[in-house]
Nucleic acid binder design. Sequence first.
DNA 1: CCTTCAAGTGGACACTATGTCCGCTTAAAC
DNA 2: GTTTAAGCGGACATAGTGTCCACTTGAAGG
Lengths: 194, 194
Amino acid sequence: MSSGYIPGMERADAARNRARILAAAEDLFRTRPPQEVTMDDIARAAGVGRGTLYRRYPDRAAIATALLDAHESALQEKLLRGAPPLGPGAPPAERLAAFYAAFADLLDDHVDLVLGTEVGHSRFTTGAYGFWRAHVRSLVVASGASDPDALVDVLLAPLAPDVYAYQRRERGLPKERVVAALAGLSALLGPAPR
Amino acid sequence: MSSGYIPGMERADAARNRARILAAAEDLFRTRPPQEVTMDDIARAAGVGRGTLYRRYPDRAAIATALLDAHESALQEKLLRGAPPLGPGAPPAERLAAFYAAFADLLDDHVDLVLGTEVGHSRFTTGAYGFWRAHVRSLVVASGASDPDALVDVLLAPLAPDVYAYQRRERGLPKERVVAALAGLSALLGPAPR
DNA sequence: CCTTCAAGTGGACACTATGTCCGCTTAAAC
DNA sequence: GTTTAAGCGGACATAGTGTCCACTTGAAGG
């Protein structure tokens, strides 16, 4: 007895390896189609064994989520406490348009990452989707539109990373045109409540 | 030389095996999560060898597409030559709403199949997406809305099978409410051109 | 009938990725 | 320096994919 030990704490080598893993993964996801990046690739690039990798991240999605987290948190913060029209204060339609624009920015920077997140159709089960959904839902409610629960997922659908990637890459549309089209959707929330 | 042979024709055993494969696949897709159905399962259930299966269908998507084809063709026919509001003759907003409703019907009957179609993010490269896109685009153009090329994919996004499945299954929404929400979108196309 | 021959068949094979397991190593507290 | 458990990493078992090729069989001609 006596060996003092602080249970919740991460050992130094563990921390170092986690950093390595995230750095290597970010690099690989940027370099090539994320669906083609294997756990093995990441482990090798990070210079750690498979066991070490799996200990922390059960699959690609977990890694991509971890990488994405910082960026998503920043946007979430702005939605909750930032200045209008993104944050509270502006009318719902304008807030939704601002959200669309901000999200398009985020997608533009990290589509590969977001696509890498999706294993199967996990998009909806990820914590982040719940947040976006709650936010947009509150805007729909505030606008007085009918049946927010049905409308909210319809409004979020165009932000699916594969749709956005298709518009930008396959169709070659500039971000502005996509955002403008999304702004059109926002019109459904106002200005006059219905 | 002389062995008479008609090149384009399918041999009797080949036809029989194709029927077996499609029947087995349809059954399996209905029975369990389509992403979990392996080519091997299908081959075994159909009572054919792997080689035979791969000869005709390179992957799950090809099989699902073949199964879906009949249903999609029927809808395509109605869009092109059917009675209004689905077919030509009605104002764009009404035609879009009718299309949404019809597509929801199709999804309701065959979500599993459509989900089975998607290998990676192949949804957009399939021939059918091109058709739906062309149809909706023509409606957008007719309505006079701006930038049809950007708007069309936004309008089609909520019909992504995973979105629809999420609304119906995870959220437990009845078809009618989803269709009603989609009908809300149709309002963007009119009635008055802008 | 019987022959012919290419379309068609099916299972073995090589390959790739996944996820787990477990003996060894090492950080860190005493 | 000793002890303890967290952490490590590579070997392994498993599973699915797609290809290849020797054999079988349908169907047309003689």
